[in-house]
Design a protein around this nucleic acid. Structure first.
Lengths: 168, 168
DNA sequence: TTGACAATGTTGCACCTGCAATGAATCTTT
DNA sequence: AAAGATTCATTGCAGGTGCAACATTGTCAA
């Protein structure tokens, strides 16, 4: 390695500077890491729910939103539970079939549906919610102090640019 | 409901204590928030890649891992790119069809495949990687100081309990 | 060597998903 | 009021996905 003449500005040698494009590693790529982490959590969550209650994540989201917000339309679920409307519609149909919710036409605007928990649906939620809270608690415990940082980051990512709430 | 006799310990009134189960809100539920945020990011990422390069996220992951690690087997991709093996296998087939990778049998162990980038595959990566880095940079910029917290949390979530690397 | 067992990659299958098209109801404009 | 535009929910369809079964190859103990 020859040295540049004295008057030329000395630059750091490139030899041991790895090209960030050449050395690109998926394992350090933020979008990948976020997707992989979410997939793991969702899978663990879905397994517990399927085994114990026989419901899927889309169904869980519909139930949870109904429990929180009372009678709502499919459109509400699309917006508030982050699901494409056909996904919400199908999840609602399965839940109706299972007897956990009812569908009724809204008499004020008959384009809208009124989805509502049945007594069985409410009973199911009383069993499910403690499990959900426990799951979340385990997750926070595992995260330790990093939980706050995660919350802050998710606030940012879920905030403004709300592209049409599509599916997963 | 009859009142207990007077000598029973008087408990604080429940009236203004909101039951955390009754008031449960999906919007504050960590697993949901993580899944929703990841879905948004992945969607934005997938859109850019599909429009600009015609590849999907599974295909991007295979390409990225090949670029980083050189010739690898499907099993390697399953482990290192967090994809169920049939997903990895199909993504690899599509990439082979498109001329971006080759499949060859490993002569040392003929159960294994050797997936390898073609010159076209390497050329594609040279175009894609700057876009990926830019996407990540925009994400970090948007996160601001929360980016560090997110990294720390993802470290935890992706660390130990590595359940069999399934799909998304 | 042989035979049982494990690892690797592919594929059939049933299911889920997103998108676009549809039908019904409502709103807006003229 | 009539016509066109808009909103809401459902559904047909094409494609992706996970899981289990399978064929092939390798490993290891007897």
């Amino acid at each position: 390695m020859t040295r540049p003449p004295a008057q030329v500005t000395v630059l750091p040698p490139d030899d041991d500077v790895t090209d960030p494009l050449e050395s690109f590693d998926l394992a350090g790529f933020l979008p990948y890491r976020l997707a992989a982490a979410a997939a793991r959590i969702s899978r663990a969550f879905a397994e517990r729910y399927r085994e114990e209650f026989g419901i899927s994540i889309p169904e869980w989201r519909v139930l949870a939103h109904l429990h929180h917000a009372g009678p709502v339309s499919v459109r509400d679920i699309e917006a508030r539970a982050d699901m494409e409307k056909s996904k919400a519609s199908r999840a609602a149909s399965r839940l109706e079939q299972a007897g956990y919710i009812t569908k009724a036409v809204n008499n004020t605007d008959r384009r809208l549906l009124q989805l509502e928990l049945t007594p069985q649906g409410r009973a199911l939620m009383r069993r499910i919610l403690p499990v959900a809270m426990q799951f979340q608690a385990e997750m926070r415990e595992r995260l330790g102090p990093a939980a706050e940082g995660l919350d802050a980051a998710l606030d940012v990512l879920l905030k403004s640019p709300a592209p049409p709430p599509r599916g997963d």
